[in-house]
Computed example of a mutant assay.
Amino acid sequence: MEPTSEVLLRQAERFQGKVLLAGLPADGLLGELPQALGWSWHAGEQKQLDARYPGRCAFGVTPPEGDFEAAVLFLPKSRELTDYLLAALASRVPNGELYLVGEKRAGVERASKQLAAFGRTGKLDSARHCQLWHTRIGEAPAAPDLHALAQRYELPLADGPLQVVTLPGVFSHGRLDRGSALLLEQLDNLPTGHVLDFGCGAGVIGATLKRRYPASRLTLLDVDAFAIESSRLTLAANGLEGDVIAGDGIDAAPRDLAAIVSNPPFHQGVHTSYQATEQLLREAARHLHAGGELRLVANSFLKYPPLIEQHLGACRTLAEADGFRIYSASRR
């Protein structure tokens, strides 16, 4: 059981009714609270929860319909996303209770000030390096408009400006990160066919690929529901088409690909994890057809070339700048 779940269960009597658990970990919490429902925006955790507790956890960018007696937000990393989630949950608990739980090092005490926008707050518990905060909702506010919170910016590319739409919580919300900027400069001479943007985020790389290679089929894949929605909005803003799918890692990707292009993720909540990228490097060959290419950007200090050469083929460095490198390898 995760420490945040353990803190909740210290106050288990508060959560025995119809409770919505938002951003809950993939542990046994739902089994301890039989009337609770979950809401997840992480495809991997959703898959685990659905396998263990079928039909008890919704996936997406908006909470499940209905009124609840209480709602609990497991603190996410993004402050902007926290604002949206608290407002969305408050709209589902008229005359009910709204809770916030999270790790101290993730800033839960600071985030309690965001909870205070909905009423007088109090700290109920502190244990396992976590805190549990609470307020009571009177008349529920209107559900927030997620799309109204989107940030939009324009990228001046060689073949014309690209419109980018990002939602709260999505990597590099409202701006282009340095790794993606370098990768955008190294998209020439890719094999044509079915192309995957792995860890698509706001869809910058995928939209650029579709415009550069219009005859190629495009799939965009991300683990996060808010990234999936951002990618859909970015494609629509540029009049482009692509298949946007949610999945946890390369195992969720199609097979027989001509190319995989990626600025791969390396954050999981407040923790740093390279597991998804390392799995991509180990398994890319299974998803590429013969001669298919993997092209990605990574921090220069990461020792990826040996892993690429072990599982895929000879690794070339196409560019290096600002602490990043662009690697390329083709399936043997």
Results as ranks from 00 to 15, higher is better:
17 G>F: 01
246 A>I: 04
285 A>Q: 10
280 L>N: 10
184 L>H: 04
215 A>R: 14
311 H>P: 05
3 P>H: 07
18 K>F: 09
194 H>L: 08
132 L>K: 04
149 L>G: 08
270 V>T: 14
79 R>G: 04
64 P>L: 07
80 E>T: 14
293 E>S: 13
328 S>C: 12
14 R>P: 07
105 R>Y: 07
274 Y>C: 09
25 P>D: 09
302 L>D: 09
257 L>V: 11
6 E>D: 14
37 L>Y: 05
320 E>R: 15
301 F>N: 12
163 Q>N: 14
199 G>K: 00
89 L>A: 11
64 P>D: 00
175 R>Y: 11
229 E>H: 00
315 C>K: 00
4 T>L: 09
143 A>E: 13
165 V>A: 02
236 A>H: 08
185 E>S: 15
97 E>V: 06
286 R>M: 15
67 D>F: 12
145 D>Q: 11
154 E>L: 13
243 D>K: 11
309 E>Y: 07
125 D>W: 00
305 P>S: 13
228 I>F: 00
145 D>L: 07
125 D>E: 15
48 Q>L: 15
194 H>C: 03
297 V>F: 01
205 I>F: 04
294 L>I: 08
304 Y>K: 07
88 A>I: 10
77 K>T: 01
225 A>M: 00
24 L>F: 06
11 Q>S: 15
170 V>M: 02
103 E>I: 02
292 G>P: 07
327 Y>Q: 01
330 S>A: 15
13 E>C: 05
301 F>V: 10
254 P>Y: 10
272 T>D: 13
20 L>S: 08
218 L>E: 08
67 D>L: 12
297 V>Q: 03
101 V>F: 01
34 P>Q: 11
26 A>H: 00
182 L>S: 02
180 S>F: 10
280 L>V: 11
82 T>I: 06
168 P>H: 02
184 L>V: 08
276 A>L: 14
162 L>Q: 03
122 G>T: 15
56 R>E: 10
190 L>P: 03
135 T>R: 09
33 L>F: 09
307 L>W: 09
221 L>H: 03
27 D>G: 11
244 V>K: 00
251 D>V: 15
89 L>Q: 09
22 A>R: 03
254 P>H: 12
215 A>I: 06
76 P>I: 02
122 G>I: 13
32 E>F: 00
36 A>T: 06
181 A>D: 10
106 A>C: 01
307 L>H: 08
263 N>D: 08
30 L>K: 06
195 V>L: 14
246 A>R: 01
205 I>G: 07
17 G>Y: 03
319 A>P: 05
330 S>D: 02
210 K>G: 07
211 R>F: 05
141 P>T: 09
241 E>C: 07
146 L>V: 06
143 A>L: 11
47 K>N: 13
105 R>M: 10
183 L>E: 03
297 V>L: 04
263 N>A: 04
323 G>R: 05
104 K>G: 05
61 V>F: 00
278 E>Y: 11
287 H>P: 04
248 D>K: 04
313 G>V: 06
203 G>M: 02
51 A>H: 12
241 E>D: 13
324 F>A: 09
27 D>R: 06
234 T>Y: 01
54 P>F: 08
298 A>G: 07
97 E>M: 05
162 L>Y: 01
158 A>T: 14
148 A>T: 13
71 A>C: 13
317 T>W: 05
139 E>T: 10
309 E>Q: 13
65 E>M: 08
231 S>E: 05
263 N>F: 01
